[in-house]
């Protein structure tokens, strides 16, 4: 028994040494089902499972860290972690500051959710999370934009009447509407926004970008990515052809 423990310990040590450098993955941990902190206090969700699989395929040792959404790009750029996987849509504005891998969810829609169907989404008060594509969209429509630091607060603002509706990724809103017991409902048409969700990297990190791109590509090819999307976002979610 004792030799067995020693053997596994040595094996674990040497295996650790053999692997490439540790890549730190930064996420928000407040955007279920993309990313969340589960009741064991660990990062969980679609991006956790996807990220772990990508690291396995790219033969990287990965570690998850959480960071506030507001400062998630500055902290990437100053090197606190190496990759952002936080439900971040690929947009030209963000692409000027950081680099993105190819997307790992297809460009999907954002939706409005309110307490009733007859909410005025072009002239009312619309809640959205700060520095998101949804916030930028609301600002353009002429509605009054109400910004919050976390996604959860945007929904809470609709529930307590502070905002008429919330605009967020449909995948995030679907379980919330489904479990609200009829209190919340989708309003108006879906809005197609952004170029899908991708992993963000420093512009100087070209080698890591290639590795992750290849891993995402291989997951798209063998269908594992589609299976993962269906598992976390339901049967109706958009998948790759």
């Amino acid at each position: 028994m004792k030799t067995l423990i020693q053997a596994t310990a040595i094996l674990a040590l040497t295996a650790g040494m053999g692997m490439a450098q540790t890549v730190r993955l930064g996420t928000e941990g407040a955007y279920p089902p993309y990313n969340l902190i589960n009741d064991a206090g660990e990062v969980d969700g679609f991006e956790r499972e996807l990220g772990d699989e990508l690291c396995k395929r790219a033969e990287l040792t990965c570690e998850w860290v959480t960071n506030d959404w507001d400062s998630i790009i500055p902290n990437l750029v100053s090197g606190n972690y190496d990759v952002i996987m936080a439900g971040m849509s690929i947009t030209p504005e963000r692409d000027e500051v950081i680099d993105f891998t190819q997307n790992y969810t297809p460009p999907s829609s954002s939706s409005y959710v309110g307490l009733s169907d007859d909410v005025d989404i072009t002239g009312g008060v619309i809640a959205a999370q700060t520095a998101t594509i949804q916030a930028a969209h609301v600002a353009e429509t002429g509605a009054t934009l109400l910004e919050f630091a976390t996604p959860d607060e945007t929904v809470a603002a609709v529930r307590n009447g502070e905002a008429d509706a919330v605009l967020a990724d449909k995948d995030f809103l679907v379980p919330i509407v489904a479990e609200s017991g009829g209190e919340l409902s989708f309003v108006g048409d879906d809005v197609p926004l952004g170029g899908g969700v991708g992993a963000g990297l420093r512009e100087s990190d070209t080698e890591l970008k290639e590795k992750l791109d290849a891993a995402i590509g291989s997951m798209k090819e063998d269908g594992t990515l589609n299976a993962m999307i269906t598992k976390w976002f339901g049967e109706d979610a958009l998948t790759y052809e």
């Binding site: 960071n67 506030d68 606190n80 976390t150 959860d152 479990e179």
Partner: peptide
């Protein structure tokens, strides 16, 4: 929390926020 230390206010906000069944213990706000 601004400096990345997860303090009591961060946890209160995180734990208190409404939870869907993606979590083991779903609850309202």
């Amino acid at each position: 929390f601004l400096l990345g230390v997860q303090d009591i206010v961060y946890w209160a906000r995180e734990l208190g926020g409404s939870k869907t069944s993606a979590y083991a213990y779903p609850h309202p706000d």
